[in-house]
Simulated scan of single mutants.
Amino acid sequence: MIQVRPVATKADTRAFIDLAYRLNAGDPNWVAPLRSEVAETIDPRRNGWFSHAEGQLFLAEREGRVVGRISAHVDTLALTMPANRGFGAGCGQWGLFEAEDAETAAALIGTAETWLKNKGLTRALGPISLSIWEQPGLLTEGFDHPPTVMMGHNLPHYRDWIEAAGYRPAKELVTYDLDITGDFPPIIQRIVTAGERNARIRIRQVDKSKFEAEAAIILSILNDAWGDNWGFVPLTQPEIDDVGRKLKPIVFNDLIRIAEVDGEPVAFMITLPDLNEAIAPLGGHLFPFGWAKLLWWLRRPRARTMRVPLMGVVKRLQSSRMASQLAFMMIEYIRRDAVARYGASRGEIGWILDDNQGMIAIADAIESRINKRYTIFEKAL
């Protein structure tokens, strides 16, 4: 018989974290996250997202043995978002889902739903772990290769168990894979060259020594560019501080570009070397020697893959030719440096909403292909 109970003690928290390592140990493409990072994510005192959200972690046990886990949570900012863009009034979420079998999955999801209904919520989205800015969606396509930094990976049969609980797809997110060792198609090269001749355009590297100022510029563009997107929830200052602290070690000036037109910042592109390549051999542990290996890698990272997690152009330019021109220029400049300075051979763009026609057109133009698909499911409670 399955018993589901709230996480209440430090031992419970350790069991909650440990379960994912046990259940995914046999999957060669699962990358064990650093345990310290997981612990920080689920700790309300250390994750700025909890400044506008609350949640509960649950463990499932069979005969005293932990066989599953889930989180149930509600984001008060998400409740204020328009309902036609994903969240809205009455919408709660669950995530951090792991289960040994279908019976356990059903018990966990049912418990999460009960928690949400007791909060007065009428609709559930999941899995979202925990914020939409962290790891949204269940991997439903692309199990044959590891995820890149900050992307999720799960067992294939989880989809069947979620759908058996009455859930249907609400939104799909995709990532695109491309070879970056060669030149882009001639038409893209001509667009980049034309942009270089335009005196109004400047594509510059960020200056990490001015981290906060550069982050503020990017955040301003992001909020404007992404404000109408499905699932958008504005980042709060505590979250911004957390993101900055976590990402700063893998921020490199030449991998992040800001596009200016007539001196005004109007677009940005963030690229990260795939940290998963460095942490995969560590098994989730920094000690006793993992920290030294990771610090050495961070000093001069050599990464096969570069991930583009965020890219944006201000709304007023999004339907213009200049928007795609700026995007192609930033992509090309970063591509050159990624190959020459970091030894990269592969790029991954995403996640991208599956109906984001602008980004899909850019991905198609540089001859990339969908390599992973993530699905966010929904159910009326």
Rank of each mutant, 00 (worst) to 15 (best):
residue 252 F to V: 01
residue 225 A to Y: 05
residue 224 D to K: 04
residue 263 G to I: 03
residue 239 E to Q: 13
residue 299 R to M: 07
residue 203 I to F: 04
residue 271 T to C: 15
residue 271 T to P: 00
residue 239 E to K: 03
residue 215 A to R: 07
residue 195 G to H: 07
residue 285 H to M: 14
residue 229 N to G: 13
residue 277 E to Y: 08
residue 258 I to M: 04
residue 275 L to D: 04
residue 193 T to C: 11
residue 207 D to V: 09
residue 246 K to R: 13
residue 291 W to Q: 10
residue 197 R to H: 15
residue 212 E to V: 07
residue 244 G to T: 03
residue 224 D to M: 04
residue 266 V to E: 07
residue 287 F to D: 04
residue 220 S to V: 00
residue 299 R to Q: 09
residue 203 I to D: 06
residue 313 V to F: 04
residue 190 R to H: 14
residue 263 G to D: 10
residue 255 L to C: 05
residue 236 T to V: 13
residue 285 H to L: 14
residue 313 V to R: 02
residue 240 I to Y: 08
residue 292 A to Y: 09
residue 209 S to P: 00
residue 246 K to A: 15
residue 197 R to S: 13
residue 235 L to K: 03
residue 304 R to P: 00
residue 276 N to Q: 14
residue 202 R to H: 11
residue 228 D to Y: 06
residue 305 T to L: 08
residue 297 W to I: 01
residue 294 L to C: 05
residue 306 M to W: 01
residue 202 R to E: 15
residue 273 P to T: 04
residue 206 V to Q: 03
residue 221 I to A: 09
residue 242 D to T: 07
residue 262 D to P: 00
residue 248 K to V: 00
residue 252 F to G: 05
residue 201 I to F: 12
residue 310 L to V: 02
residue 286 L to M: 12
residue 315 K to R: 15
residue 259 A to D: 02
residue 197 R to L: 15
residue 285 H to R: 15
residue 230 W to L: 08
residue 278 A to M: 11
residue 244 G to V: 01
residue 293 K to A: 15
residue 272 L to M: 10
residue 200 R to T: 09
residue 290 G to L: 09
residue 308 V to F: 09
residue 212 E to W: 08
residue 248 K to G: 03
residue 238 P to H: 06
residue 206 V to S: 07
residue 258 I to P: 00
residue 247 L to A: 10
residue 249 P to S: 10
residue 280 A to T: 09
residue 209 S to D: 11
residue 206 V to F: 10
residue 306 M to E: 01
residue 297 W to F: 12
residue 250 I to R: 05
residue 308 V to C: 11
residue 217 I to F: 07
residue 280 A to N: 13
residue 194 A to C: 13
residue 238 P to G: 07
residue 311 M to Q: 05
residue 211 F to H: 10
residue 286 L to N: 13
residue 259 A to M: 05
residue 202 R to A: 15
residue 250 I to F: 05
residue 252 F to C: 05
residue 194 A to L: 14
residue 264 E to K: 12
residue 277 E to Q: 15
residue 240 I to S: 12
residue 247 L to Y: 06
residue 300 R to T: 03
residue 307 R to N: 03
residue 212 E to N: 14
residue 313 V to L: 03
residue 204 R to E: 12
residue 200 R to M: 12
residue 220 S to Y: 01
residue 215 A to D: 08
residue 274 D to K: 06
residue 205 Q to M: 12
residue 237 Q to F: 01
residue 250 I to N: 06
residue 231 G to E: 05
residue 247 L to R: 06
residue 293 K to Y: 07
residue 309 P to W: 03
residue 209 S to G: 08
residue 309 P to S: 06
residue 241 D to R: 11
residue 282 L to H: 13
residue 232 F to S: 04
residue 249 P to Q: 11
residue 259 A to K: 02
residue 285 H to P: 00
residue 286 L to Y: 04
residue 310 L to Q: 08
residue 227 G to R: 15
residue 240 I to T: 10
residue 272 L to P: 01
residue 306 M to D: 00
residue 211 F to E: 10
residue 295 L to W: 07
residue 280 A to G: 11
residue 260 E to D: 06
residue 289 F to L: 15
residue 205 Q to Y: 07
residue 235 L to G: 04
residue 297 W to Y: 15
residue 237 Q to Y: 01
residue 192 V to P: 01
residue 225 A to W: 02
residue 315 K to A: 14
residue 291 W to K: 14
residue 297 W to D: 02
residue 222 L to N: 12
residue 196 E to S: 14
residue 212 E to F: 08
residue 305 T to G: 02
residue 295 L to F: 05
residue 234 P to R: 10
residue 230 W to V: 01
residue 214 E to K: 06
